[in-house]
């Protein structure tokens, strides 16, 4: 007797298995005869020796690389060659810093905008213009003014992930039910107590949704920023493997990026659940 959850799991596994099967078939090396002499063949890759282009790696190659990376994730063989664990740690720490700063600014500012029509109307044009700017456009500006590439990466995360939190906080604060506000009025509650005990918990689910969206954006941005700037991080790892045209390694990195992104989202989903109230 398999319950609904169990059935969903089985279906997921089945889809994955079919996908891997198609992948294996698509990347099977076509048998070709070696068309060059021995000496030449030693100097070129296996595919080139049979007159073909090198191919996309199959699932077994990628699986082997995955095991290789995960079995020694924290090696350090020099400034430009560190294990995938270290690279991910760098990226996550940059995200944490940039996102944390963004939250520190977005939530108080969102409160202000949500509670004051004057500030909302005054700040709205700036928000609308800055919001759609891509991180890849901010990066050169940041490098030029802030100079340090680490600081620039953190700044780019900050400026890209602040908007969902800001907008959602403002919206959540402005949408607090009038009757709760009336209760605080009849109880002569001070503005600070009102903000902390009533407005914040009331707006918390909306704020949390904004934070969850923001962390997704931040994780996206860091990979792009690191590819641009290099040094350390999972984005740099992808770029370094791209240099070596090692698609298998890139796929491993891509998988790790997806997994970490998923974990981050799960964390925030938990937090969101904690502050949600049934009305």
């Amino acid at each position: 007797m398999v319950n609904e959850r169990g059935r969903a799991v089985i279906l997921s596994v089945l889809i994955f298995a079919i996908f891997v099967m198609f992948w294996q078939i698509a990347t099977m090396p076509t048998q070709g005869a070696q068309i060059v002499d021995e000496e030449y063949a030693k100097l070129v890759g296996a595919a080139a020796a049979t007159g073909q282009k090198s191919t996309f790696p199959g699932p077994l190659d990628v699986g082997a690389k995955l095991v290789e990376h995960l079995s020694d994730p924290f090696y350090d063989r020099g400034a430009n060659d560190k294990g995938i664990g270290i690279q991910l740690a760098w990226s996550v720490s940059r995200v944490a810093l940039g996102f944390g700063l963004a939250a520190l600014v977005a939530i108080p500012l969102g409160f202000l905008i949500g509670m004051s029509r004057l500030f909302f109307q005054a700040l709205d044009p700036f928000i609308q213009v800055l919001k759609p700017i891509s991180p890849l456009a901010w990066m050169p500006l940041a490098l030029f003014t802030l100079k340090d590439s680490n600081v620039s990466a953190v700044f780019v995360i900050f400026i890209c992930s602040i908007w969902p939190m800001l907008i959602n906080t403002a919206f959540g604060v402005a949408s607090v039910r009038k009757e709760w506000i009336d209760v605080t009025r009849t109880l002569e509650v001070s503005p600070l107590r009102k903000a902390w005990f009533v407005i914040l918990p009331a707006a918390a689910p909306t704020i949390m949704t904004g934070m969850r969206i923001s962390i997704g954006i931040a994780w996206l941005v860091i990979v792009a920023a690191e590819m641009l700037v290099g040094g350390t991080g999972i984005g740099y790892f992808v770029w370094n493997e791209w240099n070596n045209l090692s698609i298998a390694n890139i796929l491993v990195a891509v998988l790790m990026i997806g997994l970490i992104g998923m974990l981050l989202d799960m964390c925030f989903a938990r937090l969101q659940k904690a502050v949600t109230y049934r009305d």
């Binding site: 890759g45 063989r77 020099g78 400034a79 430009n80 060659d81 370094n240 493997e241 240099n243 070596n244």
Partner: peptide, 8 residues
């Protein structure tokens, strides 16, 4: 090596 050119 991967630390430098990262090529075969």
């Amino acid at each position: 090596t991967p630390n430098y050119l990262n090529q075969p």
